[in-house]
Design a binder for these strands. Structure first.
Lengths: 405, 405
DNA sequence: GCGAGATTCTTCAGTTACTAAACAAAGAAA
DNA sequence: TTTCTTTGTTTAGTAACTGAAGAATCTCGC
């Protein structure tokens, strides 16, 4: 029985590193048991990681009858990653360490109507300022993650301008990876990050692996159908969550209420609002938290719909954990959270006694930027296998005509 | 750049075998391109597969300027698998070849109230009869797949009684694997099998890998919420698809209609029906297909709800293909299919021009049994990696108390 | 019909990343 | 102290790759 034992990762090094990250603190024997590799392999792999400076021995466990185990930990300040979130309103930059903790953070006004080239130049400058502000050597920075509605517009240029490897993703998926990396959930967990900014989405992690879907559209809870005969949605469907209870729908309803519009201080009148949806939604949330009953009712109605969509998502994927994140949940999470908890407790308490945990992200507001950095950490440190090539290649490769023997 | 190149499978042998299966017919050069392995590796692996009798050279491709490629195919009759579907009403047995094609099939009355031991003895006897009816050597039978509501009740005993390795699963997942194996969908495809028997479910395959969920409950579309304020469901939720439009709901509505009850020949009156739901549902479907307008209206209403749930599932997972399968779709599929197609065309035609394909399974009626056999084929021939161990082990293994150095 | 070139497939030495097992080191128990 | 248990390291052996050279088989031009 020799030969390599296969693990989920591209390399054993990555697998071991991920186990150390997920466990927080673990011994070599712990790694042997968790990985299925033998002591000898763990010994050499760990030595390599220590030589690279990624891992450090940080103490001893109590003896279990013999030699005490030496505990290993990620050296959180061995490497760093930059995360950038480009928004309608703002650009948020974070520098995180290996543990996904924010080391530095700056936020600047958005690049509303600037030229792409100018935006790239500006972002590169501000990333430089971010790094210099804490005096980290460039060599220790693994890369830059960029999250925005249309990241591919800037990706390649930003890489050239900063000299850093760039990875791109959408906000909800980034947020999910951020939660996963920061260790709030287990190594092989199945969970989703419900994301609310100016719209609703979900990042999906199944058994520790991100599921983006072949078109990158997985987690589109904004278009979950919650009413077969509901109002039409631009997507072509009817009764979509987004139309019934998304941030834009909440804002639109609030604007129909003169008293609430005034109380929440929503700008403009009947005219199309110039302020971003997320800003107006935040104003309504603040009014609700300050006791405005009509704002609260509006948000609780939205929460019931989001809860129904969350229940549906859990049924679809058999999720263990749901994390609420994103700027809008950062403000309104305290209103949505109890509604979601109640709905999911009711629907899953009976079923085999495996309750679904619902949490509010502790860093919901900057989740996209932190998540962007986490994607860098994951892709550089713990690359997963690519799997086999696409069937397109396969089909293209094989001549279509053949003769029987 | 030496050393093993990682693929998605437990072994290169399995990866290559799966590529040959997925392609149907492919050359060694095709395998080199599709797998990323080198020619030398493919050569030796393929020789091994030919020696085992699993693969055969079946012809030549046309020349592309030099030596013609030798085409390889699975030898479909090299191995077999048994699939058993245990139902309220019937037990269905199939023997399939490597291609997932049915070689023999028998169906017997269900084991309503027999002792588990007697049921196992009887199943073992009938499996024996199935195998003998085509005279296949036992050594060529890879194993037995068992699909039922509570397969674990029989699993181990059935293995002992038949002398075959036994794998267990639920109906919807089995049906999905059956579709995948039979090659209706690509090798790394992301799709779901919508299953309708006496209830509704979905088997989910993401990027070629089955997603069952940590509790095995993934694909629970029966409890998708389609109406936030809808009628309560035993599951604890409100407005679940199952309650609004599942087979049992359709049958219940039909029974409220005296004329339809008579026209469809539904047994019983106001009393609780003794016939299985699927049987009554089939009767209603037949009436609809014979032109009964009220039966048709009832089913089309159900179909609109199922279509909304399907749309939601596609949004959740970014699916490429949906396959309708299971006994109830075998009969009513022609009514549901156009409704689903229209809904999904409308909702996804705009979005980046990637339409969702919706198909009716050609063998919907015996899909669970065929799927059960396909699971055997997959698990014995193409085992996927197990991944890392569970975090439970990891936590249990590490002493919770430790001292800092 | 006969090289020349192209392409496919095989062979084989070399490399990598593992395993198994012996060994060393460190603490507990007696 | 001695002995036992447990942890971690070292070493030899092996499976499964890669890369490169070579053999086999086809097409094409003349």
């Amino acid at each position: 029985m020799s030969g390599p034992a296969r693990v989920t990762h591209a390399s054993t090094r990555a697998a071991v590193l991920d186990l150390i990250r997920a466990a927080g603190m673990i011994s070599r024997v712990g790694l042997v048991n968790a990985s299925g590799l033998t002591g000898g392999t763990i010994s050499t792999v760990v030595r390599g990681l220590i030589d690279e400076g990624l891992v450090a021995e940080t103490g001893h466990a109590e003896s279990t009858g013999g030699k005490r185990r030496v505990l290993l930990q990620l050296d959180h300040f061995a490497r760093y990653a930059v995360g950038v979130h480009l928004d309608d309103a703002r650009i948020t930059y974070v520098l995180t360490n290996l543990g996904g903790a924010v080391v530095a953070r700056i936020s600047r006004a958005g690049a509303a109507s600037e030229e792409p080239a100018a935006v790239v130049a500006r972002m590169a400058r501000e990333v430089g300022a971010l790094i210099d502000s804490v005096g980290v050597e460039r060599g220790r920075i693994l890369g830059l993650g960029l999250v925005s509605a249309r990241p591919w517009q800037f990706g390649a240029d930003l890489g050239r301008a900063t000299g850093l490897p760039v990875v791109l993703d959408n906000d909800a998926t980034a947020a999910a990876i951020g939660e996963h990396w920061s260790g709030g959930v287990g190594a092989t967990s199945t969970f989703a990050a419900l994301y609310m900014g100016s719209d609703l989405g979900a990042g999906v992690v199944l058994g520790g692996t991100t599921h983006r879907g072949p078109g990158g559209h997985a987690g589109g809870i904004g278009h979950f159908c919650l009413d077969v005969d509901g109002p039409p949605c631009p997507c072509g469907g009817r009764g979509c969550l987004e139309v019934l209870a998304g941030p834009a729908a909440v804002v639109a309803r609030a604007r129909e209420d003169r008293a609430l519009t005034r109380a929440a201080g929503l700008p403009g009148g009947r005219t199309r609002p110039a302020t971003p949806v997320a800003t107006d939604f935040a104003a309504i949330s603040r009014a609700a938290r300050q006791g405005n009953a009509r704002a609260l009712a509006l948000l609780e109605r939205s929460a019931r719909h989001v809860a129904a969509a969350a229940r549906t998502l859990v049924h679809a994927l058999d999720l263990e954990v749901l994390v609420l994140t994103g700027p809008s949940f950062a403000i309104a999470g305290s209103i949505y959270l109890p509604v979601l908890r109640e709905e999911l407790d009711r629907a899953f308490a009976s079923r085999g006694a495996r309750p679904v945990a619902v949490r509010l992200s502790p860093s919901a507001a900057s989740a996209p930027a932190i998540g962007a950095a986490a994607i860098v950490l994951q892709s550089e440190l713990v690359p997963r296998h690519q799997g086999l090539r696409l069937p397109d290649d396969l089909a293209a490769d094989e001549p279509p005509v053949f003769q029987r023997a």
